[in-house]
Simulated assay, not measured.
Amino acid sequence: MTERPIRLFHISDIHFGLEDARAIRWAQDAVADERPDAVIITGDLTMRARSREFTAACHWIQALDVPVSVEVGNHDIPYFNLYERFFAPYRRFRAIEHLVEAEIDLPGLAIVPLKTTTRAQWQRFPWSNGWVTAAALQQTLTAIDALPAGTRALVACHHPLPERREKDGKLLTINGDHAMAALAGRNVLAVLSGHIHDPFDLTAQTEQGPLRMIGAGTLSRRIRSTPPSFNELVVIGDTVRVTARNLEQVHTADMQIPALPENALPPREPGEPVAPVAHVPAVDPPVH
């Protein structure tokens, strides 16, 4: 018998508080009309982790009515309330806490979370980029190792895992190289992430072999070089087909960036990677 394709919608960086209203309606309608097997949201549901932003985000996610797994992004940890940031950083997720870092089991496939956000980082400030702690990585590896024989795995996190920026070696995700090697050694199909607001489909070479990295764009007004989008993933056996679906009907190859920038700001320096479509705003929209 031919194996049934598994279809996933990979959504990231919705940024309620600075959301693109047309884009989130379009994505919600696509879920309702097409009923994917699951929706994977790789973080940054909100812009400033305000209660009203979380309320809007939770209502939107609850209305999807399909299996959903939600990763926490750096924008989802309280920005102004330092007490909550350090002592109750996920309190505002209560309405969807059963979906946060939830593992999803599909026929022959598992979506396994990897936490890359932290409340603080002694190595640097600000704390917007990723850190794969030893405990977080071990939890993910343990979950992968416990899967039934033959089950394929997709790992979902917020930050892309490369540890250093290509052009100058600037630190990006702490412990990222070690994490990529460990996941490559488990034959993970791909790592799904967000954070930089442009889609990508890249392969990292690690000491344990290649590791595919798939990034989703944004559904916010905080675009970098491509229009609002989400990824449609079709998994058949060990093959993952990616389509960067977008409001402007731009071809997937023209939506995907060739390398990873530091973050989701418009390029500030010559040589920052952008997609061929190159819709680069001069500045980000203001946050109120």
Score class of each variant (00 low, 15 high):
Ile144Tyr: 01
Asp145Gly: 09
Asp145Met: 06
Asp145Arg: 03
Ala146His: 14
Leu147Thr: 10
Pro148Met: 10
Pro148Tyr: 10
Pro148Glu: 12
Gly150Gln: 11
Gly150Lys: 11
Gly150Asp: 09
Gly150Val: 05
Thr151Leu: 05
Thr151Gly: 04
Thr151Met: 07
Arg152Ile: 01
Ala153Glu: 08
Val155Gln: 11
Cys157Gln: 06
Cys157His: 10
Cys157Lys: 02
His158Lys: 01
His158Leu: 02
His158Ser: 02
His159Asp: 13
Pro160Asp: 05
Pro160His: 13
Pro160Ile: 05
Leu161His: 01
Leu161Trp: 02
Leu161Val: 05
Pro162Arg: 00
Pro162Thr: 00
Arg164His: 15
Arg164Pro: 02
Arg165Cys: 00
Arg165Tyr: 06
Glu166Gly: 02
Lys167Ser: 14
Lys167Cys: 14
Asp168Trp: 06
Gly169Phe: 11
Gly169Asn: 10
Gly169Val: 01
Gly169Trp: 13
Gly169Pro: 12
Lys170His: 14
Lys170Ile: 04
Leu171Glu: 12
Leu172Gly: 02
Thr173Tyr: 07
Thr173Cys: 15
Thr173Val: 08
Thr173Pro: 06
Ile174Gln: 13
Asn175Phe: 11
Asn175Asp: 14
Asn175Pro: 01
Gly176His: 08
Gly176Phe: 10
Gly176Glu: 09
Gly176Val: 04
Gly176Ala: 03
Asp177Lys: 09
Asp177Cys: 03
Asp177Leu: 00
His178Val: 13
His178Ser: 04
Ala179Leu: 05
Ala179Lys: 02
Met180Asn: 07
Met180Asp: 03
Ala182Arg: 15
Leu183Asp: 04
Ala184Lys: 09
Ala184Arg: 04
Ala184Val: 00
Ala184Tyr: 04
Ala184Pro: 03
Gly185Pro: 05
Gly185Phe: 12
Gly185Met: 11
Arg186Ile: 10
Asn187Ser: 15
Leu189Thr: 00
Leu189Met: 12
Leu189Tyr: 13
Leu189Ser: 14
Leu189Ala: 14
Ala190Thr: 01
Val191Met: 01
Leu192Arg: 01
Leu192Cys: 08
Leu192Phe: 03
Ser193Pro: 00
Ser193His: 15
Ser193Lys: 00
Ser193Leu: 06
Gly194Glu: 12
Gly194Tyr: 09
His195Gln: 02
His195Thr: 03
Ile196Cys: 01
His197Trp: 07
His197Tyr: 03
His197Asn: 06
Pro199Lys: 07
Pro199Thr: 10
Phe200Cys: 04
Asp201Pro: 05
Asp201Gln: 07
Leu202Ala: 11
Leu202Arg: 11
Leu202Asn: 10
Thr203Asn: 09
Thr203Gln: 12
Thr203Trp: 03
Ala204Ser: 15
Gln205Cys: 08
Gln205Trp: 00
Thr206His: 08
Thr206Val: 13
Glu207Lys: 06
